[in-house]
């Protein structure tokens, strides 16, 4: 009978070490230098300012992101490159103008899109291209900024402002929708409709499988989690993405002044008002919003404040 007496005691089970990424929530064993899903540096505390904005995580150059059986390596500092090593069963889709280089053996084909005419009218890319493994393919954009890795958990949905999308894995479904954010101005006999956020927004969602979404933002990226009912005003063109649970509408502010100049009643600040719950991300380099100061004759639902 084996009593175990005189034998070496069984070695204790090693403590299960886990690390939860503060950026994407992925749980790993924390032995790597960076999060395997989004590349965020491990053991560096997320930088949060008193207002609640969190700076996008630092990422070591050449950080590797794993998805399914493939790997994405992020290279460079000013205009980062996403360098994919696609496994045979994996694929990605992208707007064709972000392709930087590829192995000659990697086939690229068109991805069918609905509503091509609407996209053409809205100035969005009409063509979406896709590439399949095996092989290597790399992407980058044409402006200095940060590459934002968003690993999407099953059942997740995010809305992204137009022209910021870089590449997504095939597990991420793509759709687009009308922003519903607009106003019309009248100058003499001329009437003009403005879309401060663009006519359309991209929507990315996952079903039962997780996926990886990469965005390229101009300048630096900051993210904030809004509580239910909590509101924040941002410049419309600074928006990168929001969880689809976050609602949005226009907000006009008219500043007060001790004495009014001629036509100064037309001075106004045009904001996008975002209401939680959910995440909101902004970029620090953004285009000025077109607003000629002409009289607003109509708009999508909006709030106003006169100071």
């Amino acid at each position: 009978m084996n009593t175990g007496f005189g034998q070496n005691p069984p070695s204790p089970m090693p403590a299960q070490r886990t690390y939860t990424c503060s950026w994407c929530g992925t749980v790993s064993d924390g032995t790597a230098l960076s999060c395997p899903s989004c590349g965020a540096t491990i053991n560096v505390k997320a930088i949060v300012n008193p207002a609640g904005w969190m700076k996008a995580p630092g990422r070591k150059d050449m950080a590797k992101l794993n998805f399914n059986k493939s790997v994405c390596q992020i290279e460079g500092k000013y205009v980062p490159v996403a360098d994919f090593n696609l496994a045979p069963e994996d694929g990605v889709y992208f707007a064709h103008h972000v392709l930087l280089w590829k192995d000659p053996s990697v086939p690229i084909t068109m991805m069918p899109l609905r509503g091509g005419w609407k996209r053409a009218l809205a100035g969005m890319p009409v063509l979406m291209t896709q590439a399949h493994g095996p092989g290597r393919i790399a992407f980058s954009r044409d402006a200095p900024g940060e590459m934002l890795a968003l690993p999407l958990q099953p059942g997740h949905r995010v809305d992204v402002r137009e022209h910021l999308f870089l590449v997504a894995t095939h597990a991420v479904a793509y759709d687009f929708f009308q922003t519903g954010v607009w106003f019309t101005t009248k100058n003499g006999d001329e009437s003009e409709t403005h879309y401060p956020l663009g006519m359309m927004m991209d929507r990315f969602s996952t079903g039962n499988l997780p996926g990886l979404l990469l965005l390229h933002a101009s300048g630096n990226v900051f993210v904030r989690e809004l509580a239910p009912g909590q509101a924040i005003l941002i410049k419309p063109t600074a928006l990168i993405f929001k969880d689809s649970t976050v609602s949005m509408h226009l907000h006009f502010e008219h500043p007060n002044s001790g004495w009014q100049l001629w036509m100064s009643w037309q001075q106004r600040y045009l904001w996008l008002r975002l209401v939680g719950p959910g995440r909101v991300a902004i970029q620090s380099a953004f285009e000025p919003v077109e607003d000629d100061g002409a009289s607003i004759t109509n708009s999508s639902p909006a709030t106003r404040q006169n100071w």
Binding site: G76, H96, L100, P112, G116, L127, R141, D142
Partner: peptide
Amino acid sequence: LTSGLFGGTAMSLALMTGPGRVGIQSMYV
């Protein structure tokens, strides 16, 4: 690149054949 609705398009890429060094810039024109 072909598409049923819009007839398709062509994307031109530069094919570089070795031997030798090739340098690229990530913020391209």
